[in-house]
Nucleic acid binder design. Structure first.
Lengths: 153, 153
DNA sequence: TATGAAAAACCACGATG
DNA sequence: CATCGTGGTTTTTCATA
């Protein structure tokens, strides 16, 4: 399941997590390696699925998703049919950027991105139309002290 | 604050959010534009900060962060000195990938990535050594139904 | 280290709505 | 008159011998 990383691999990944536009030369230097050796390692980690992909990150406010909401979902009915509906809703609704099943009786946390509070309300209505939910509580994010895609290495 | 996006911009961003390795030609085709026009728009959006950066995404399990934890933090002492300590801890600890101040009396949600439960305990000790916290409750993620960096456009 | 192929980065002009 | 498309040049980076 997990790939055996050494310090050099970690340096390569750390640099790429921060900025994937680095040229092979710059990356190799950051890792303390020759350009070629660095390229081979990167390629290997891509093949092994350690590197999942390359994406651009957008500024949420500038694309009209200024509001982030954590939605705690509790449900009494945890049968297969419900699960299916829930999965479908999560897949369909692009406002849901994270859906996490938690420890402690069927309990989900949703991370939701919308423009503002009215937009959240509209989202909420879409959600409950797709899945019967017994207990929902939304908490709005006032400020992000940190919000990164960089994993600790 | 927010950039005025049209449908073509949205198509460009949607494609890049999914895969930033697309060549200009492929991206232009996805957007229904010539290569150059597409490049001009992309550059503009980079300049405006709509595109924040390009990064690689890693597989958490394969780099030894299989466990994701949501930590709810409540504090009674919300003075400036405390805030400073908290900010510092958030900055210093790489296991914290998200720190969000929430609505409803000083309340934080931390998103934390660690290897396993013992690693979470070690993180917890580091955290409370850095900041006095009156009330912490951790919820462990059992399964991700969704976890994406793609914002709804 | 060298090298050929490919893509990106940029410029200028005329067309279009 | 913004923005498009075309077609060019120069530069960089890749990927491999």
């Amino acid at each position: 399941m997990n790939f055996n990383l050494d310090d050099i691999d970690r340096r390569i990944l750390a640099a790429l997590q921060r900025d994937a536009t680095l040229s092979m030369d710059a990356l190799a230097e950051a890792a303390g390696l020759s350009r070629n050796a660095c390229w081979r390692r990167m390629r290997q980690m891509e093949g092994a699925g350690v590197i999942r992909g390359r994406v651009v990150l957008l500024d949420p406010a500038k694309v009209g998703c200024a509001l982030q909401v954590f939605v705690m979902v509790r449900t009494s009915s945890h049968d297969a049919a419900w699960m299916e509906k829930f999965d479908r809703a999560v897949r369909i609704l692009p406002e849901i950027v994270g859906a996490h099943r938690m420890t402690g009786d069927l309990d989900y946390v949703l991370r939701v991105r919308v423009a503002d509070v009215p937009a959240y309300d509209a989202f909420y209505k879409k959600l409950i139309a797709l899945v019967p939910l017994s207990d929902i509580s939304a908490s709005f994010v006032m400020e992000d002290n940190k919000d990164t895609t960089e994993l600790p290495l």
